[in-house]
């Protein structure tokens, strides 16, 4: 029971990920009534769980290199610190990413436990925060130009374009949900992997390791977040900062999904290494910042009208403030957990 309590902070992170980040994938499609919320929620839930269980280990491994939290109480507090940081910064209206918060919280644990932080790993992770939205922008520019050209060549009837876009939004949304699960499950359950309370067992001849069970649980938490709260967020996204039409929404989701996938796919990394190509680090990145990058890309192609430079500056400042704040909260709360509640948070 206590073990489950300790997992609760991770599950809460999962819930909040589902509630917020599913809107990055299906938000515009649902808000513009291209897809029903029920369809979006079912597709997103299935694929987010699949992504987490099949491809979630890559990014988890990278977070593990940064700092392997070795007591479950410590892991609980690291995840909780990240959750509190996200909640606090959201309250203040600052753009925040769970990925950046969890990294900060792990570094906070490293400092508290007196473990050395692998600065190479930290640098690798931090560089992806900058690179990933840029990459999303590059992809969206590319896809936008291609789609514009194709639409001019194909001359699809408005009704047919509508039908194709609906199908495209579901397919790309499924890919996006898979990539989100694969990339971001590390934020939710990564810190618990070294201290998993679950023992392996077999089901239909397939062995579920402790990590698999954690990822499955995290995936289910994300799904619960999608079903219980994301509808509201999706409607806000649709009416929000940037109004996208269904075709540009498709481009934004596709660009975002590809970047999430690139930063999560182990098989792609293996393939790149086998062909002596520079590999892409497997790091959890922020899907919200990828969306902003992708939308920015479309803004650039259209002559840079309506780009909110203030928002970009806020995001860039979040790359520093989020992990620093999370590290601080993590350090202080670990101190309390250890000294006030007499829990071992490291060994």
């Amino acid at each position: 029971m206590l073990l489950l309590f300790f997992l609760s902070s991770g599950l809460f992170l999962g819930w909040s990920l589902g509630a917020n980040d599913a809107s990055n994938i299906f938000g515009t499609a649902v808000a513009t009534k291209m897809i029903r919320f029920k369809t979006a929620a079912i597709v997103a839930s299935i694929f987010v769980i699949l992504g987490a269980c099949i491809s979630g280990s890559g990014t988890t491994h990278t977070l593990g290199k940064l700092g392997a939290v070795n007591m479950i109480a410590g892991a609980f507090m690291v995840a909780l610190s990240a959750a509190v940081t996200v909640f606090w910064m959201t309250k203040l209206g600052l753009p925040v990413s769970t990925s950046q918060a969890i990294v900060g919280a792990i570094v906070g644990w490293n400092m508290f436990a007196g473990k050395e932080t692998d600065f190479n790993a930290l640098l690798r992770i931090a560089s992806t925060w900058v690179a990933s939205p840029i990459l999303a922008a590059v992809f969206s520019i590319l896809f936008y130009l291609i789609l514009k050209k194709l639409m001019h060549i194909w001359k699809l009837h408005l009704f047919r374009l509508d039908a194709y876009t609906r199908v495209g939004l579901v397919l790309v949304g499924a890919f996006g949900a898979y990539s989100l699960g694969a990339n971001n499950i590390a934020n939710v359950m990564g810190v618990f992997v070294p201290v998993t309370p679950f023992t392996p067992f077999s089901i239909f001849g397939y062995e579920l390791s402790g990590t698999d069970q954690l990822f499955l649980l995290g995936g289910i938490a994300i799904s619960v977040g999608i079903f219980t709260y994301s509808k509201r967020v999706m409607q806000t996204v649709g009416d929000g900062v940037v109004k996208l039409n269904p075709q540009t929404a498709l481009i934004v989701v596709l660009s975002q999904s590809i970047v999430l996938f690139l930063f999560a796919s182990k098989s792609l990394e293996t393939w790149l290494l086998a062909h002596h190509l520079p590999s892409i680090p497997l790091v959890p990145v922020s899907s919200s910042q990828l969306v902003i990058g992708a939308v920015l890309g479309i803004g650039i192609v259209n002559g840079g009208k309506g780009i909110k430079y203030g928002l970009l500056l806020k995001i860039a400042s979040g790359w520093i403030t989020t992990p620093v704040l999370a590290a601080l909260i993590s350090f202080i709360s670990l101190f309390f957990l250890q000294n006030v509640f007499n829990q071992s948070v490291y060994y």
Partner: peptide, 14 residues
């Protein structure tokens, strides 16, 4: 199904 409806609508608008 969705494509069938679409085709019919296209025809009707034409």
């Amino acid at each position: 199904m969705i494509f069938k409806k679409t085709k019919k609508l296209e025809m009707q608008t034409d």
